[in-house]
Design a protein around this nucleic acid. Structure first.
Lengths: 237, 237
DNA sequence: TGCGTAATAATTGGCGCCAATTAAGTTGCA
DNA sequence: TGCAACTTAATTGGCGCCAATTATTACGCA
């Protein structure tokens, strides 16, 4: 059976939004750069209306920013927002670990081990993009097993939002090696079904990826957890 | 200085989306009900274009659902999604507590205490809507102090999404009384800066609100947090 | 030459019209 | 009377046009 012309349009529009989002993910459009509607029309062979709908969708998803009468541009997030996203990611991704441990199958863990190994190889001999893609696949595979589609979706939405920063991940080779170690440690903790350990690794993993190379330490985060952490320990004496 | 006509339109459109969202929140439109564009035009005195933009925004935010050639309707979520939302809410809202304790001022805590008292009054003598509004205000005030706008926004977005269910909150008077007790317990824990206790109350609070009246126990949740519960308290000994 | 100002070009964005589609109503036939 | 096919009515949604707005360039004056 053939699909109706209208239904096709709806699909095309959703796909277009994802294509543009993908382009931003791949850094084809840099933070602060304007997304000119005419260019997008040609580049993606879409009508102006579809382009506008896609841009609006991305704006609602906060991937891009809308300035009236100026257009849409890749959101340039400030440091405070950057750290807010990081802290929220830590809460979500660490919180997902309980579900992952409860639901993941042993075979999936082994596939993760393979990916962790591939990342290690990419660290020494791969391009930045390869590293990024394998890293993405690794984390995708983990959260795909958290047993909670809503949570999974939120995690990816947040990861997309954090791309709007000019901060480059893995600025140093040290950081790459640390990431590599973390991945293997995660696999190991998964095998042992050690939820607290997993959560702790994730916490540090995100901290390192999003802080190390800016020279900004975890202690300077917006949501001050050093204080709360201390109080957590001492308060109920 | 007068604002340009175009800028005004943009503001109007965003406002319209929130107005419709508010109407859904107030249950003026029930889950499964179709939102006819012509009705909305008249009801909110807006152009068809603005209505459509607002509906699209709400659809992206998953408050409503879009069916091609049929229109938009209040999303009717299934039980699995309902529980997924609940589990994600628990992770987010419990996770926000560290920030709240770190950032909230004593005066704000006292304002919370007042609201907790008002809720208690409303339980015995108020309407369902009053109860709901005071409850909302109470939780709003808490999360407003978590020091993380991104986290705060996500919490409210999720709360909006969970309205699409037919499940009525506070089905029993028992549940209302339990909510009331929880609020006071939260204020008390806030005063003592007891993060783990606060998180635990929040967890149970959401569990009760979203489970009790369905007759479905917390043990049947999708994301199994019973394991992480023990670990989170003990993790940084 | 530098700066404020006016003309010009480029871009966004509002919206009305009508085709496509679905729902409701009606008729006819077994 | 029940059901199916057809007709009519109601609703959604695509999109092109052009006004509103902003950016750019050119110009004139101190």
């Amino acid at each position: 059976m053939e699909q109706s012309p209208k239904a096709q349009r709806v699909v095309a529009r959703r796909a277009l939004a994802n294509e543009i989002a993908q382009a931003i993910r791949l850094r084809m459009y840099r933070p602060g750069e304007w997304l000119r509607q005419i260019d997008l029309e040609e580049k993606f062979q879409a009508t102006r209306f579809d382009v506008r709908a896609a841009l609006e969708e991305l704006a609602v998803r906060k991937t891009i920013e809308h300035v009236p009468n100026r257009g849409y541009r890749v959101a340039e997030i400030d440091l405070a927002t950057y750290f807010a996203i990081r802290d929220t990611r830590i809460i979500l991704e660490a919180g997902a670990m309980a579900g992952v441990v409860a639901n993941i199958a042993p075979e999936a863990i082994e596939r993760l081990a393979v990916l962790a190994g591939e990342f290690g190889d990419a660290v020494v001999s791969g391009t930045r993009i390869e590293q990024s893609e394998i890293n993405s696949a690794f984390h995708h595979l983990i959260y795909a097993h958290c047993g909670n589609p809503v949570l999974e979706e939120m995690i990816w939405a947040l990861r997309d939002r954090s791309r709007g920063s000019r901060v480059t991940v893995w600025a140093s080779h040290q950081a790459l090696l640390a990431s590599d170690r973390d991945h293997h440690a995660m696999v190991e903790a998964l095998r042992r079904k050690d939820v607290p350990r997993l959560a702790e690794i994730i916490r540090q993993h995100i901290d390192k990826d999003m802080v190390d190379e800016t020279g900004q330490g975890p202690s300077q985060r917006v949501t001050d957890t050093s204080q709360s952490r201390g109080s957590e320990v001492s308060e109920d004496t």
